[in-house]
């Protein structure tokens, strides 16, 4: 069993979404999860990439264990951010989970082609959303062996 004996660690999540209502809802859902986690938010591509690369004001921020990415965003959209992460040798090991309302075949296919690690559709029902957030936290925070941080 991985990490079962180690003290519970806090799953660092970077949520990239442009909609404050969605951000708060997602935050709320993850707050209720039984697996400890911390959700950081980035509302556009620049902030997100700065956070991931830990530059500027994010120099002291933790390297996220998981990225939750919305696809449809104004300006540089989720697909481009995904491509940017997966093209950067420093960042490509960070798991990226798409969290969006779209379930169009082209979006799903495109995301996996850009090396997304999972594709989640935001549930319409709130209770399902809570359940999903809990599952995501448990899965990535408890069962998944995440890539080691400082290995070249």
């Amino acid at each position: 069993m991985p990490r079962n004996d180690s003290p519970p660690r806090v799953l660092q999540i970077l949520l990239i979404d442009d909609n404050p209502a969605d951000i708060e809802l997602t935050r709320q859902c993850f707050l209720d999860s039984r697996t400890p986690n911390e959700v950081h938010c980035a509302m556009n591509a620049e902030v997100a990439l700065a956070f991931l690369k830990r530059v500027g004001q994010f120099a002291q921020s933790p390297r996220p264990d998981l990225v939750l990415l919305d696809l449809n965003m104004p300006g540089t959209d989720g697909r481009e951010i995904l491509a940017a992460i997966k093209c950067d040798p420093e960042l490509l090991t960070i798991p990226v989970v798409i969290l969006t309302t779209s379930d169009a075949d082209t979006d799903v296919d495109g995301a996996y082609r850009l090396r997304a690690n999972s594709y989640l559709r935001k549930p319409a029902d709130l209770n399902e959303f809570f359940a999903m957030a809990d599952l995501v936290c448990t899965y990535w925070g408890h069962f998944v062996v995440l890539p080691p941080v400082d290995v070249k």
Binding site: N19, A21, D22, L25, Q28, T101, K122, A124, L126, F129
Partner: peptide, 12 residues
């Protein structure tokens, strides 16, 4: 999108 927000926040 907005519908989901309305519905979710009502439930919340």
């Amino acid at each position: 999108e907005p519908l989901r927000a309305v519905s979710n926040y009502c439930q919340l």
